[in-house]
Design a protein around this nucleic acid. Structure first.
Length: 107
DNA sequence: AAGGTGACTAACA
DNA sequence: ATGTTAGCCACCT
């Protein structure tokens, strides 16, 4: 089967359970390329609207919501995460999640 | 077709 | 701690 990096990223994202978050690098690693974190962001930016992805669970390594997309603002992402039970705090205009507590530990 | 860019990260000065 | 450099792969001009 033709498993492209793109497909593996999509699959990896769907693996993240509700109420947990994962970092871009983490998803990239599961997909097979630990250094391709930025590609995960690219794929999400392009597919969160067309596919039915839990894009809100993917944040950066500092536990911050790095969304810049006007259609999917960090504010909305924060709301979605809170509705699944993830605590999100806002500091200096930056939304943050306590990774030590909410980051998903795959395997 | 080719080069620039990006919801990123790690390593190094 | 902040700034720079390199690496990753797909999408857009």
């Amino acid at each position: 089967m033709s498993t492209t990096f793109h497909d593996r990223v999509i699959a990896a994202i769907r693996t993240v359970p509700t109420g947990r978050v994962a970092t871009y690098g983490q998803i990239a690693g599961i997909a097979g390329s630990p250094r391709a974190a930025i590609i995960v962001g690219e794929i999400l930016r392009r597919n969160s609207r067309t596919h039915d992805l839990p894009w809100q669970r993917i944040i950066n390594r500092h536990g911050e919501l790095s969304i810049v997309n006007i259609e999917y603002p960090a504010e909305l992402q924060a709301e979605l995460l809170r509705s699944e039970g993830v605590e999100v705090v806002k500091e200096n205009g930056i939304f943050r999640v306590n990774l030590a507590q909410f980051q998903w530990k795959g395997a």
